[in-house]
Design a protein around this nucleic acid. Structure first.
Length: 111
DNA sequence: GTGGTGACGACAC
DNA sequence: GGTGTCGCCACCA
């Protein structure tokens, strides 16, 4: 259950709900927000979140393939390092066990 | 009010 | 199977 005035603020809420050691995809969040066809909006929202100085575990949000897209945009040192610290194994800029660590907001948040 | 852009996704070739 | 292209919706100039 997430409500906000703006679309990207809802994205912040969902991302902040991602448990440690788990990751999700832009498409999953977009689907939870009712815009599965607009996963781009999620990525864009996260980009704005950095500009807005909003602290969210953006490193836990990857693309559908589990690739660390946006690591260059991440203001931190590297998303991969943070993921590995949470017990997530990263292989070649991608999640090694994507299916196992995948966190679906639709199911977790009981849409 | 219109146009362009964007950390993606799915489909076509 | 890999690459290329289109589409998608919300926000900013």
């Amino acid at each position: 259950m997430v409500k906000s005035e703006s679309f990207f603020e809802m994205v912040y809420e969902v991302v902040k709900l991602i448990p440690a050691g788990r990751v999700t995809s832009y498409g999953a969040i977009a689907a939870y927000l009712g815009m599965a066809k607009s996963a781009r909006m999620v990525g864009w929202a996260l980009n704005q979140s950095i500009k807005s100085n909003v602290e969210i575990p953006a490193h836990r949000v990857l693309n559908r393939n589990g690739l660390l897209t946006g690591k260059m945009h991440f203001k931190g040192e590297s998303m991969q390092c943070l993921l590995e610290k949470e017990g997530i194994k990263v292989k070649d800029n991608a999640i090694a066990e994507w299916d196992k660590v995948f966190w679906d907001p639709r199911e977790a948040l009981k849409l």
